[in-house]
Write a protein that binds this DNA or RNA. Sequence first.
RNA 1: CGGGGUGUAGCGCAGUCCGGUUAGCGUAUCUGCUUUGGGAGCAGAGGGUCCCAGGUUCGAAUCCUGGUACCCCGACCA
Length: 493
Amino acid sequence: MAKELKELTSRSVNFSQWYQDLVIKADLAENSAVRGCMVIKPYGYAIWEKIQRQLDDMFKETGHVNAYFPLFIPKSFLSKEADHVEGFAKECAVVTHYRLKNSPDGKGVVVDPEAKLEEELIVRPTSETIIWNTYRNWIQSYRDLPILCNQWANVVRWEMRTRLFLRTAEFLWQEGHTAHATREEAEAEARKMLEVYAEFAENFMAVPVIKGVKSASERFAGAVETFAIEALMQDGKALQAGTSHFLGQNFAKAFDVTFATKEGTQDYVWATSWGVSTRLMGALVMTHSDDNGLVLPPKLAPYQVVIVPIYKTDEQLAQINEKVATIVSKLKELGISVKYDNADNKKPGWKFAEYELKGVPVRLAMGGRDLENNTVEVARRDTLTKETVSCDNIEMYIKKLLDDIQENIFKKAVDYRSQNTISVDSYDEFKEKIEEGGFIMAHWDGTPETEERIKDETKATIRCIPLAGDKTPGKCMVTGKPSAQRVVFARAY
RNA sequence: CGGGGUGUAGCGCAGUCCGGUUAGCGUAUCUGCUUUGGGAGCAGAGGGUCCCAGGUUCGAAUCCUGGUACCCCGACCA
């Protein structure tokens, strides 16, 4: 009758294990039979769909349209942009044959050696090459520009070690690929999409992010400039939550994409690309959740409210059903998604624990006492507090509560980040503080050599050079050479 | 690719060192009764290729050889 007891590893004892447990036990995802690939379960996918829809709306509002490009990329395409090859060629899945045949020994099937492909196909690790090869045919004149396409797709990167949502061999994402007539317009596009990502992260996921520029060594393979949003997880490690790249004319040159300008000359097209992935699900879990399970922001929760009846007799249940029905319809009128769980094969206590694990922001419980008093018990997931309130105008109360929760978990995350962001001026202090986790703001001389040395000695990387905030120049903490501004260091996922 | 670990019921594990009844425990599942304001209790039932192959032995989950899968740590990670 009762379900398997679900206990999570404590967050403070082993964050990594806690995360893994939680993703599995809250029914978000699980490892699949295929190495490094995950199965996203219905509950996890419901959250992903909310993320997708919201982002898609935001892309449309900024003038973008969706399209779809092939899963397979001819091997030769990948080698056309020199830096791009360097960055991606090593971790790809490759299709070498197009047919199987019955095994000669009668057991199963084998790859038919006759069916070897003339040119191997790469399962896309990202789509710049296939898209720019296509754009060449779409673009002749400045009148064809800009092209503002986005694609929702899966990509494959043969990572050596994987973790659910954070790094998987196959993952779902969106990739925007735009083409512009001028450098200025393309740069503005890359920055605009960074803003869209930051707004989404903060206003919908309630995950505070730092917007910044990547250092040369962390830059996307083939980009001129990479912008990123960086978030801080509850264990003090950083997570890159989204990137937007200004690609210059690199891909246009590699794929020979030129256009006739207003002035009648020929010029290469300017490009951007930008993406966020199912990794956002990992960020969501690692930012807000606690030892009782997920904590979902109301704006992304598949159910914002769950209602649990507590009853002794069928008559009592019937009364509660009736009362709850009116509450449900009033909540729905306000656009609040609600689930009434009156299944009689689970006990109330079991349901309470289960919906906490699933991160439902608000739980209402109604029992005999409430029927008599015209009240309902309201429990909020973020603070784990309960209070009994009148059923009159309950819908307005809930609406406001959902807004409060959205705001509160964001504020909590912002506070956590402030408490774990420090400035240091000496390398010795840096080495000491990096052990405690968090963001460290420090001066850096701008050279890859110093960056590399810091990484080797401390495992910390430059997460980004922040676009906003303190721009005071100083001296590099390692070499003492001039530094334009402080940059963000952290150990990262 | 290097180092370590594990494979026994749906899930989690004990048993393996030191071979020996019918392979066991928790949980889940099913049945019945009692329960229901924070993951219910009691009673009963079903469920096994002990990862695979070979070897040693009167006898192998246990010992030996080979294979295989998965996990952890490292290297790697636009």
